[in-house]
Amino acid sequence: MPAPENMELSVKGLIVTGAQRRKLLDLPCLTLAPGQSLGISGPSGAGKTTLLHAVAGLIPVNTGAIQWGDTDLADLSDAGRARFRAAHMGLVFQTAHLFDELSALDNAAIAAGFAPKHARAAIRDRAREHLQKLGVQASTGRAVATFSGGERQRISMSRALARSPAILLADEPTASLDRAAAERLGDDLLDFSRQGGTLIVVSHDPSVLARMDTVLRLADGQVMQ
């Protein structure tokens, strides 16, 4: 269950440049109310992942402001942005980025390793709870290397949700899944949004995008619609 926080996203005059000052993203304005879902689509190289990384604070912003509630990511240091992500965001990537050597529960509760001591047990409990909810057998100590793609993404999702974030950012979460698994993960994402979380999903998948409150289409780093 997402924390009841005022995490409205407000992006203004965002410009991200890459090597040789090439403009990767130019976004004049974007707002997303708490509890809303936003889909980001567009062809490869359109700047979808760059936008997701920017709003996650994973890349420095050259120009503009990215405000989550009262917090402007541009004002934060690397460490500050990491703290913000740890406290408020869950991230799901196209590949699950799991520790194949660990169990599903250890993976889902990986953030307990750097959480304050008093919060570790709660993270582990929530990780177990989300794994069960998402249909992953958490009781087994089996390493996740042999899990299916869909299971791995659901573990990744459980990892993202284990700290009860207010914001969930997902980058092509269904790209490597078959249709059934993609549908199921789409449901899980929407559940998060329905429970009050702010959801941003980068996807090529029309069925995922169709379920978002808003869809932002990018091309060459610009908003198409």
Partner: peptide, 13 residues
């Protein structure tokens, strides 16, 4: 990749 994941999900440096 694993270390990047940790930093992405908010692990302190």
């Amino acid at each position: 990749g694993s270390l990047a994941l940790l930093r992405a999900i908010g692990a302190p440096a």
